[in-house]
Design a protein around this nucleic acid. Sequence first.
DNA 1: CGGTGTGTTGAA
DNA 2: TCAACACACCGG
Length: 376
Amino acid sequence: MDYSCIDDSTSTTSESLSFSTPSANKTTTTEKLPPPPPPPPQAMRLYRMGSGGSSVVLDLDNGVETESRKLPSSKFKGVVPQPNGRWGAQIYEKHQRVWLGTFNEEEEAAASYDIAARRFRGRDAVTNFKSPAIDGTDAESAFLDAHSKAEIVDMLRKHTYNDELQQSMRKFLDGNGNGKCFGSGTTMTHSEGNGGVLRAREVLFEKAVTPSDVGKLNRLVIPKQHAEKHFPLPALTTVTAMNPSPTKGVLINLEDRTGKVWRFRYSYWNSSQSYVLTKGWSRFVKEKNLRAGDVVCFERSTGPDRQLYIDWKVRSGTEQQTPVQTVVRLFGVNIFNVSSAKPNDVAVECGGKKRSREVDLFALGRSKKQAIINAL
DNA sequence: CGGTGTGTTGAA
DNA sequence: TCAACACACCGG
């Protein structure tokens, strides 16, 4: 129902979008900015509607102030008050409003607007909460790009956006590094004030590093049992048609508590039949001054992103106990976590070959569903 | 009938 | 592009 086809079907058809229509266009061959042909002023009776003002309207006719009618304006962009005390979210596009639904919480509506803004206007969209996005390759963006605007709007209106997002991510994770490069992700910013799962973590396992783990071998052996249980390396362990470069392992990015991102290579060594973190590990050991006996603890976000962290503690207690946390995204696929301390932004990298960031992602999304809009 | 979301308008 | 505002219309 409604303006279902905001961008999908090339058509614009229906009637939803097309506003200016061909004739409206004037001169300028290029895509230039659309002349702002104001809406046909079919003035009917004249109230004083419109942005009449945020001030109280005094109706002296009755000698009573009709301020009661006044609705509290929202401090959030794209959010409008509803008569019943709830909040509506809307975004404009192409001179027309796209209704994003009504919400109980003002923030919820604002968050919905943000999501829509991202999908409709890209990463540089002005939003209420969401950070401008550092990299443009976070999983949520991938998710957004993987869906048409109409789909996103529909989710928002039905209040199922988060569920869809989570489901998408989960599915992706379960599916092991096979197929898709995106359509999954993490990111669970604030979003509505109802069930926003916060970044809680669960401990997966710990390991007291051995001398060799912090030695010249430049690698950390991950106990097989734990590796296979928590960090399955899908096709990477076996040379199958699926996996062109089985020995390369995957790149994982970890973020420590200070916001620093560490990238390690996680792979399986056939020679020793062990799972290891190689490239990047020595740097970590050095910077954190890890020594044999210290314990490395791997944790994972209980959230849908299943984000992984690595914490470490000094052997017994002595010394500074600077817990360092690293974040690993997915193992079946290479991922980049570019954020500093935020759960957002995650870049996904296809088994082996990385995508070239936002440009790519956008290109994908655009080519599919946004063509129309861009065209207009 | 309560609410939702559209019609419409003035102001960025 | 936006938000304010009134109300037509819709689902219950």
